[in-house]
Design a protein around this nucleic acid. Structure first.
Lengths: 160, 160
DNA sequence: TTCCTTGCAAACGATTTGCATTGGA
DNA sequence: TCCAATGCAAATCGTTTGCAAGGAA
């Protein structure tokens, strides 16, 4: 269930680049908008009922990433997970479960986030590096893996 | 050139697990200790003069990672880069060049690092996630890609 | 001698690509 | 109509693994 606003923003962005916002691409965006963290091609494939061939899925992901609609996340393992870009989702960080590999999003309280941005610029400047973005990758154990017995995880994530 | 201390620590750790610290493994550690950031199998292969077969390299990386001597970094692209674990290198963060893909290490000034650790624990707790580690992945442009003409980069990194 | 390691080659699995077909502006 | 998008199948490429030979304790 993509919010009308996000859908409009994406449609506009794609239109500006002459890229079609097809039903297949809308479905991918829909799943990602509903997800609570980045999703891999395989996870999306499942979420979409395995009807869309993987190659098409990969192509959609590639096009949407190039258009700046999706942001790839190279988390744990050798798979790439995608999520809506920050200009759509808002700035956030990642919780990576060391056990199941699932990735969730977190936001930091605002005063800290601003301070962090400044800190990042200042700390990297001495090395001659110009910082443009940052994400905190937080490792640990997700609730689902901490309490395995308390019902199945509703997230559908964690392919591991 | 591995510092004697680090070499001793690794030797002790491996010995404790009944794992041999062979010359091949020492060479891998040597290159990583001299590097200024995580290195991929292909990069190490080059650094070692392409004499060690890739499969052996991968096996060394696997053994050393399982032993807790190396830490894998799933940065950009589909490749995995390795570096000495934090108990050997000290806690640090990563500068990832958006252009060439090279990864360098950075440390944050201490008062901030402590505050960040607390912040991370507090911010993740509400989601029921237990944080165990964190790394700031900072994206941007490295000096080499900012000033392409000023001599070749001495890092040897950046395979892209 | 007895395992652990190393090499080589084949196997794997995630992702990409060539090419013909389908579909939307 | 016409070019972008899609499907299928084959190709890539980083990484893993089976198996026999080499080495260190």
């Amino acid at each position: 269930m993509v919010s009308q606003q996000i859908d409009r923003q994406i449609a506009a962005r794609l239109a500006a680049s002459g890229i079609r916002y097809t039903s297949g691409r809308r479905r991918v965006v829909g799943v990602l908008a509903a997800a609570d963290g980045p999703r891999s091609a395989a996870e999306l494939h499942d979420d979409l009922g395995r009807k869309v061939p993987l190659s098409s899925l990969y192509r959609s992901l590639s096009v949407l990433t190039d258009a700046g609609v999706l942001a790839p996340h190279h988390g744990s393992g050798r798979i790439v997970r995608y999520e809506l870009a920050e200009w759509l989702m808002g700035h956030h960080h990642h919780l990576v479960c060391a056990d199941c590999g699932a990735v969730d999003d977190v936001e930091l309280p605002e005063p800290w986030e601003s301070a962090l941005a400044v800190l990042v610029s200042e700390a990297t400047a001495p090395q001659g590096f110009i910082a443009a973005s940052h994400t905190l990758e937080i490792g640990g154990l997700c609730p689902g893996c901490l309490n395995p017995e308390q019902g199945t995880r509703s997230k559908g994530a964690g392919i591991g």
